[in-house]
Amino acid sequence: MTTRWLAPEEQRAWRAYLAATLLVEDALDRHLQQEAGMPHLYYSILSRLSEEPERRLRMTDLAERLKITRSRLTYAVTRLEKDGLVLREGCPSDRRGSMAALTDAGMTVVERTAPGHVENVRATLFDHLAPEQVRQLEEIFTGVARALQSGAEAPGAPEDVPWRRRSPKPSCS
């Protein structure tokens, strides 16, 4: 098999993507550490749960939406539980499943932190883009995500990637 090396413009785009994503994630993480005393991942968990009906979601679905491993999510939720921001509950329709539920204290953290977080996202990323670039950014990354997720159906796709797991799961209410 012949290696398809990156063309110079692809190499520049790749390195710009890496630098920007690392810098954006670092800026968001530092800001959330200062504002809420937690990393971006923990805030993302709280934020996702705040958007769900009854502020709860099955752990496997939460891992899939956040694109992280179940073990990483379990560790993060355990830490958030210790702070009283999340509760873990059994799934009434499936003994093997568990739910993550946002507590009132967790919702208070989201409500207090969200305005500053949104302003930081805006200042870190969107203030540097023209409206057409925002549309292009969405189009580009939606296409990349769609292609990678549809590749999950390919034979031999790794099963250890959270969003590629296909296990039957009863719904929890």
Rank of each mutant, 00 (worst) to 15 (best):
R70F: 10
S71M: 15
M107W: 09
E51H: 09
A145M: 09
A123F: 01
A152T: 07
A105L: 10
R72G: 14
R15A: 10
R112Y: 01
P162M: 10
W163K: 02
R164T: 07
W14A: 12
E52T: 08
V77S: 07
L148K: 11
S44A: 14
A105D: 12
L32C: 05
G156E: 03
G156K: 05
P158N: 12
V121I: 13
P155H: 07
G90R: 15
T21S: 10
A152R: 06
Y42H: 14
E153Q: 10
E111H: 09
V109H: 02
L49N: 02
A7H: 07
A63L: 06
R112P: 01
R72L: 15
R164Q: 10
R58N: 11
T21N: 08
W5Q: 13
R165M: 11
A145K: 10
H117Q: 09
V109T: 11
L85E: 03
V118M: 07
M38T: 04
S50D: 07
A100N: 04
M99A: 13
W163H: 11
T21I: 08
Y43L: 12
L18T: 08
H117M: 08
Q149P: 00
L137M: 11
R122Y: 13
L87R: 14
R65Y: 04
E9K: 08
L6M: 11
R165C: 07
A114P: 00
P168Q: 14
Q136H: 07
E51T: 09
L102S: 07
A157E: 08
I140A: 06
P158L: 11
H31C: 07
Q11P: 00
Q11T: 09
V144S: 03
D61K: 12
Q136G: 05
R96L: 15
L6W: 06
G37C: 05
R72N: 15
P170G: 15
R95N: 14
L28V: 03
V77Q: 06
E9G: 02
D26C: 02
K169P: 02
L80M: 13
D29L: 03
R48W: 00
R70I: 10
Q136I: 01
D61W: 05
P39K: 05
V109R: 06
V24A: 06
A123M: 08
L87H: 14
Q34G: 14
H117D: 03
V144P: 01
V161K: 05
A101T: 13
G37M: 06
L102D: 03
A114V: 05
M59L: 15
F141E: 05
P170A: 15
L148D: 09
R56I: 04
I68M: 10
Q33C: 08
T78H: 14
L28P: 00
K82S: 15
A147V: 08
